[in-house]
Write a protein that binds this DNA or RNA. Structure first.
Length: 573
RNA sequence: CGGGGUGUAGCGCAGUUUGGUAGCGCGCUUGGUUCGGGACCAAGAGGCCGUGGGUUCGAAUCCCGCCACUCCGACCA
C-alpha cells in the first residue's frame, strides 16, 4: 500500500474530546473517524486490523467445530416476542416500522435468531451438539457511548451459540470455549487480561464469565484477591467485612438536630462510621409507591446489582415524595411502615451497639442491637466490596481494579429453547429442550483494547498478528534515483514474499516519515536512504523495542521474516 | 434521563465581555532552496461563524427556539 494514496489523515493534535489513550491514538493515526455519537468509520488500516482479528477468531471458532453463519441485522418483532425480550429490553434496542407498517428492530444480540434457525431443522439428539457463530454488525442505542471504540453504538461482534443434549456436555463445551478465549486474546496481543465470574444480566442463565482487560480507563470494577485466584465483577463480588467489636449498651434516643448524614451524625456523636447504620431508599421500577430501604453499615455503599438479585425486582433510586419518615432524613429500621420492603446487609449483623435513625426529625438512637431490639431479621449481602476487604475464599486482601470487558461467555441453559419452544427427540423417544451456551467478543473493542494497552508517547505499537501491515518502509530522499529504485524493489520483493507492506512514497522530510511510522505503529520499520545504501544496507527497526540493525540489502527479506516469525511465535495461543 | 460545556477553514484554536461584514498555527496547492526525527523562503486556495427566528442602520458577537457533539452521573448483553 502506498501511503500517499491511503485515505487516512494523521494529525499532530488529538480531537478535543478524546480523553483516553486508545481514542486519542486511533484518531490521531487516522484509523477511525467519527460519524455520529458512538458511530465511527474505520479506515483501511483499522479495517485490516479488524479483519486480522476476525481471522484469528474464525480459526479458533472453527477449531471448536463452529459453523459460521450470518444472521440478519434487521429482524421482525415476532421472533423477539417469542422470547419475551421485545418488551423486556428497553430503548437500547432500535425499533422501527417498515413500509408495510410492520414492527422491525435492529439486532443487538442473536439468541432469538439462532434458535429460530435451529428450531425444526434440528429435531434429533443425534444432531447435537453443534455451535453456530457469526461476525456481524450489531447496533445498540447506548444511553451514553464514549471513549472512541471502547463503547460505541454500532460495532462488529463475534457471537456464538451452542446447543447441547445435556448440561454436562454444555459445561464441557463451555470450558473449551473458555480456553479458546484465552488463546484468542493472547494471539491478538493482549497482555493484562483475566477472566472473572459475572452477573448474567439480560442474557439470563446461571454461570457466566467476562474477560476483562485490566486498565485504569475501564468502566467495570473488578475485585481481585492478592493472595489467591479469587476474582469477580463488582456486581457479584463478595467481600468479607469484619465488624468492629464494641460493648452492648442500652438503647437510647439522642438529639442530633440538623445533622442527618453519616458524616455529620458520626462526628456529632463521636462514634466511628462503621458503628452506624445507613439507610438507602429505592423504589421498585415502574411502581414508585413500592419502596425498598436497604440498610448497611455507615461506611459502606449499597451494591444495587446485588440488591436487585435479593429482591428479584428492578429498582431505581427513590426520588423523594410525600412520605414523612423518609423526608425527615433520619431513617432507621425500627417503626417503619410495614408496607416498606427492608433489606439488611450482613455487615450489620454482629455489631453490638449501633447508631440508627429514629425515623423522627432531629433524633437518632444509639446502642441499637439487632438481636435484642429487632429479632428475626435476616441479613444478606448487598454491600459493595471495597479495596482491602477480606477475600471470601482465602481471607487474603482484596483489591479493586478497573477493566474493559473484551468478551463474555454464558451458560444459558434452556431459557431460549424453552421460551421459543425448540424441542428435539431424545434417545428415550421423549422430547427435550436443548441446553444452550452463548459466547461474544467485540472486535472494535478488541482494537481499542490493543491501542489502550500497547503504545508509547510516539504512538501505537501494534502486535505482529493484527497489525494492518507488518512492515513500514520509509525511503529517505526519494529524489535520489538509487534510493527510489532500491526502495521500490524492496517493496516489491517483500510483497511478493507474502509480507504486508506499507510504503511511504511521499517526498517528505525524515522526521515527518518517522513520526507517522511511530504513530501508526507497524511492527517493523525499514529505512532506505543514501546513507544506508552507501554501504549496501537498509536499516530495520522493531517498533516495540526500538532496536535497530543495519542489514545488507539482500538479507533484508530474511531478517524481516525472522522478526515476523519470532514475534508470531511469542503470540501463539 | 439529570447536571455542566462546546459548535468559527480539513484538524487544533483565538475573536463573543464592550455589535462595524473574520484571524492564527498545522495541513493543502504552486515555484525555489533544503533533507536521518514534524525544514525554510515566496506566492496561493479554502469559512452562510451549527441552524431558524428576533433586536439593530449594521450580528460570529445581544435575545429566544431548535439541532449536533461532548464531559460527569444514571443506565448498560
Amino acid at each position: 500500500m502506498l501511503l500517499s494514496k491511503l485515505v487516512c489523515e494523521r494529525t499532530k493534535e488529538a480531537p478535543q474530546d478524546a480523553k483516553i489513550k486508545s481514542h486519542i491514538l486511533l484518531s490521531r493515526a487516522g484509523f477511525i473517524k467519527q460519524v455520529s455519537n458512538g458511530i465511527y468509520t474505520m479506515t483501511m488500516p483499522c479495517q485490516k486490523m479488524s479483519q486480522k482479528i476476525q481471522a484469528i477468531i474464525r480459526q479458533e471458532m472453527d477449531a471448536l467445530d463452529g459453523q459460521e453463519v450470518l444472521f440478519p441485522v434487521v429482524m421482525p418483532r415476532e421472533i423477539w416476542e417469542t422470547s419475551g425480550r421485545y418488551n423486556s429490553i428497553g430503548s437500547e434496542m432500535v425499533r422501527f416500522k417498515d413500509r408495510a407498517d410492520r414492527d422491525m428492530l435492529l439486532g443487538m444480540t442473536h439468541e432469538e435468531a439462532a434458535v429460530h434457525l435451529a428450531n425444526h431443522i434440528v429435531s434429533s439428539y443425534n444432531q447435537l451438539p453443534f455451535m453456530i457463530y457469526q461476525l456481524q454488525t450489531k447496533f445498540r442505542d447506548e444511553a451514553r457511548s464514549r471513549g472512541g471504540l471502547i463503547r460505541v453504538r454500532e460495532f462488529t461482534m463475534k457471537d456464538a451459540y451452542s446447543f447441547h443434549s445435556t448440561k454436562e456436555d454444555m459445561e464441557a463445551y463451555y470450558d473449551r470455549m473458555f480456553d479458546a478465549y484465552y488463546r484468542i486474546f493472547r494471539r491478538i496481543g493482549l497482555k493484562r487480561f483475566i477472566d472473572i465470574k459475572s452477573d448474567s444480566g439480560m442474557m439470563g442463565g446461571s454461570v457466566a464469565h467476562e474477560f476483562m482487560l485490566l486498565t485504569e480507563v475501564g468502566e467495570d470494577s473488578i475485585v481481585l484477591c492478592n493472595d489467591c485466584d479469587y476474582r469477580a465483577n463488582m456486581e457479584v463480588a463478595e467481600g468479607v467485612i469484619n465488624s468492629p467489636a464494641n460493648e452492648i449498651k442500652p438503647l437510647e434516643l439522642v438529639f442530633t438536630g440538623e445533622d442527618k448524614t453519616i458524616d455529620e451524625v458520626s462526628a456529632r456523636l463521636g462514634i466511628s462510621q462503621d458503628l452506624t447504620c445507613k439507610a438507602v431508599v429505592f423504589a421498585v421500577k415502574g411502581n414508585s409507591e413500592e419502596i425498598v430501604i436497604a440498610f448497611t453499615r455507615g461506611d459502606l455503599e449499597i451494591n444495587e446489582a446485588k440488591l436487585k438479585k435479593v429482591l428479584l425486582k428492578d429498582i431505581v433510586p427513590y426520588d423523594g415524595g410525600a412520605n414523612e419518615i423518609l423526608a425527615c432524613g433520619n431513617i432507621g429500621p425500627v417503626g417503619l411502615d410495614n408496607k416498606i420492603i427492608t433489606v439488611f446487609d450482613k455487615s450489620l449483623e454482629n455489631i453490638n451497639s449501633l447508631v440508627i435513625g429514629a425515623n423522627k426529625a432531629e433524633y437518632h438512637y444509639v446502642g441499637f442491637n439487632f438481636k435484642r431490639d429487632l429479632p428475626g431479621v435476616k441479613f444478606v449481602d448487598v454491600s459493595k466490596t471495597r479495596d482491602g476487604d477480606a477475600c471470601p475464599v482465602c481471607g487474603g486482601k482484596l483489591r479493586v481494579e478497573n477493566g474493559i470487558e473484551i468478551g463474555n461467555i454464558f451458560q444459558l441453559g434452556t431459557k431460549y429453547t424453552k421460551s421459543m419452544d425448540m424441542t428435539v427427540h431424545g434417545a428415550d423417544g421423549g422430547e427435550f429442550h436443548p441446553i444452550m451456551g452463548c459466547y461474544g467478543i467485540g472486535v472494535g473493542r478488541a482494537i481499542a483494547s490493543i491501542a489502550q494497552e500497547s503504545s508509547d508517547d510516539k504512538g501505537l505499537i501494534l502486535p505482529m498478528s493484527v497489525a494492518p501491515w507488518q512492515v513500514h518502509i520509509c525511503p529517505l530522499r526519494l529524489d535520489d534515483e538509487s534510493v527510489k529504485n532500491k526502495a521500490y524493489e524492496l517493496y516489491d520483493d517483500l510483497t511478493k514474499a507474502g509480507v504486508d507492506v506499507l510504503f511511504d512514497d511521499r517526498n517528505a522530510a525524515a522526521g515527518v516519515k518517522f513520526n507517522d511510522a511511530d504513530l501508526m505503529g507497524m511492527p517493523i520499520r525499514i529505512v532506505v536512504s543514501p546513507k544506508s545504501l552507501a554501504t549496501g544496507e537498509v536499516e530495520i527497526t522493531v517498533r516495540a523495542t526500538k532496536e535497530s540493525q543495519k542489514v545488507a540489502y539482500d538479507k533484508a527479506l530474511d531478517v524481516v521474516k525472522d522478526i515476523i516469525e519470532e514475534q508470531m511465535q511469542f503470540l501463539k495461543g
